[in-house]
């Protein structure tokens, strides 16, 4: 007999213990992300798709020094440099990147490029939706990476 009582008590205790977790969690803040129905939240230092920044005048910060490309362990950054001229000024320095590609089929999001950049032109953004059916789409061009101009150009 005592064994039956003991078993019942133990069951009740175990249930209560188990449900106490459920009950506690019921009143805690929700952590589940409802992606894709709701936007994803990121930690500030999440390393996603890169962003090429602009300075306070709206000029590109990148001076095409190739240091990010040199630092990149998988060599996924491809740059072509060109001269700023009096008529067309793209960056604040003498040169700018006329072509800047990152191949995301190779990028391992290590952040070395960001560390190498002397002008803080490149950082990791929070973009992560890279899936595609065509591998050629994984190469992002400067236009894809560049931060929006500060103000829309006057018309």
């Amino acid at each position: 007999m005592p064994s039956i009582l003991k078993e019942a008590a133990e069951t009740a205790f175990t249930l209560a213990k188990g449900f106490s977790v459920t009950l506690r969690t019921l009143f805690r803040p929700t952590v589940t992300e409802n992606y894709p129905d709701e936007p994803v939240r990121f930690e500030a230092r999440y390393r996603g798709i890169h962003v090429l920044h602009r300075d306070e005048n709206g000029l590109e910060k990148c001076v095409a020094c190739f240091l990010c490309a040199a630092a990149c362990p998988v060599q996924c950054i491809y740059i072509e440099a060109a001269d700023n001229t009096a008529e067309t000024r793209i960056s604040a320095s003498e040169r700018y990147a006329s072509v800047y590609n990152i191949d995301y089929s190779r990028c391992i999001f290590c952040g070395y490029c960001v560390e190498a950049c002397p002008t803080d032109a490149i950082t990791h953004g929070h973009g992560f939706e890279l899936a595609t059916y065509n591998i050629a789409d994984m190469v992002y061009r400067k236009e894809d990476l560049l931060a929006q101009p500060l103000k829309p150009p006057r018309t």
Binding site: A64, F66, A69, A70, A81, D83
Partner: peptide, 9 residues
């Protein structure tokens, strides 16, 4: 060569 590339490239 001016402002086109870098020696290691």
């Amino acid at each position: 060569y001016r402002y086109k590339t870098r020696p290691w490239e």
